[in-house]
C-alpha cells in the first residue's frame, strides 16, 4: 500500500508498504530516518518514541497505515520543532508553547510548509541547532550509549511543553515508559531539570 504523511514538517510518501509494517519500520527503513530506535518492538522501552499529531507514541506499535494523513515528529526534527514552538509561543505570548497556533502539535501549517531539512555536517555534527532538551542531555551527561536517547528526548520535550517546571516525581512519571540501561537515570533527571530551568530563565527574560 501507499502511505502519505508528514514527517518533521515535510510531506512524505512511502510505496509498497506491507500491511504489517510499523511506523517505526517505515521511518527507519523507507524514509532514511533511523534516529528512532528499535529496542523491543513491543512498546516497553520507549526508544522509538515519536510525536503523532503531537501525542508521544511508541512508533513500533503504530501500524504504518495509521499514520496516513497525520503529522509525525522524530528526533531528527526535534530541534526545528522546538524552535518553531518557541517562535509560535513568542508570537502568541504562550510560555509553554502548548497553546500555540497549531493545536497539539505546536507546528503551524505555514511553518510546516516552510520547513526544510537542514543538513548536519556529518563530520562535526555542526550545522543544526539543538533544542534546549538536546543541549541539556549532552551537558548533563545524560547520554552514554545513546540508544535510548532519541525516545527520551521526544518524551522529555513533550513533558516540558505541557509542564514548564515539573517536580522530580513528575519527571519520573513522564519518563517511566523509557528504559535506559546505562545511566541509572540520575543525569537524565539532571538534564530535564536543566532544560526546565533554562526555559524558565528565557520566559523571565522575555
Amino acid at each position: 500500500m501507499r502511505v502519505n504523511f508528514t514527517v518533521n514538517g515535510r510531506k512524505q510518501e512511502a510505496d509498497d508498504v506491507w500491511e504489517g509494517e510499523s511506523l517505526l519500520y517505515v521511518l527507519r527503513e523507507r524514509m532514511g530516518l533511523p534516529g528512532s530506535k528499535n529496542a523491543c518492538e513491543q512498546g516497553e522501552c520507549g526508544s522509538c518514541t515519536v510525536r503523532l499529531d503531537g501525542v508521544p507514541v511508541c512508533s513500533c506499535l503504530v501500524a504504518a497505515g495509521q499514520a496516513e494523513g497525520r503529522e509525525v515528529v522524530t528526533v531528527e526534527g526535534l530541534a526545528d520543532f522546538a524552535k518553531q514552538r518557541e517562535q509560535a509561543a513568542h508570537a502568541g505570548g504562550c510560555a509553554s508553547g502548548a497553546c500555540g497556533t497549531s493545536g497539539t502539535s505546536g507546528t503551524s501549517l505555514d511553518a510546516a510548509q516552510q520547513w526544510s531539512a537542514k543538513g548536519t555536517d556529518s563530520q562535526t555534527g555542526e550545522g543544526g541547532d539543538l533544542s534546549p532538551i538536546q543541549q541539556a542531555f549532552i551537558e548533563a551527561g545524560a547520554v552514554q550509549c545513546g540508544f535510548c536517547t532519541p525516545g527520551l528526548l521526544v518524551a522529555a520535550d513533550e513533558l516540558l511543553e505541557r509542564e514548564a517546571s515539573p517536580s522530580d516525581a513528575d519527571i519520573r512519571e513522564a519518563l517511566s515508559g523509557n528504559l535506559c540501561r546505562c545511566t541509572g537515570y540520575e543525569k537524565i533527571l539532571d538534564a530535564v531539570r536543566l532544560a526546565a530551568a533554562r526555559q524558565a530563565e528565557t520566559v523571565e527574560a522575555s
Binding site: R28, G125, Q135, G141, G146, P150
Partner: peptide, 23 residues
C-alpha cells in the same frame, strides 16, 4: 576535566550511526 562526549551531538540528533542503522 569532564569534557563533553565527542559523539554527544550526533547521538542527540539521531545522526549517530549505530550498527542497526547501517544501509
Amino acid at each position: 576535566d569532564s569534557p563533553l562526549r565527542p559523539d554527544g551531538t550526533l547521538k542527540v540528533t539521531g545522526e549517530f550511526a549505530y550498527s542497526s542503522d547501517l544501509w
